[in-house]
């Protein structure tokens, strides 16, 4: 993977994966990151105000 590219990944992904181990559970940091991001996105989506919601309230 070229590291000279200006449009390359913001995080350097050109290395072997890091793994977290706890008893029989083994999970890559990247997979865990995605799972945490999904939970955060879900919670934010539930509570973050939606643009223009006040104007639409009561509308069809």
């Amino acid at each position: 993977m070229s590291q000279g590219w200006g449009l390359g990944a913001l995080v350097n992904l050109d290395h072997y994966g890091h793994y977290l181990n706890w008893h029989f559970i083994s999970i890559s940091v990247s997979n865990l990151t995605v799972m945490v991001l999904m939970v955060v996105t879900f919670v934010v989506a539930l509570f973050a105000p939606f643009p223009g919601r006040r104007n639409r309230r009561g509308s069809k």
Partner: peptide
């Protein structure tokens, strides 16, 4: 759409 659809979820 109904008003309740105006949500990020």
């Amino acid at each position: 759409q109904p008003a309740y659809v105006a949500s990020w979820i």
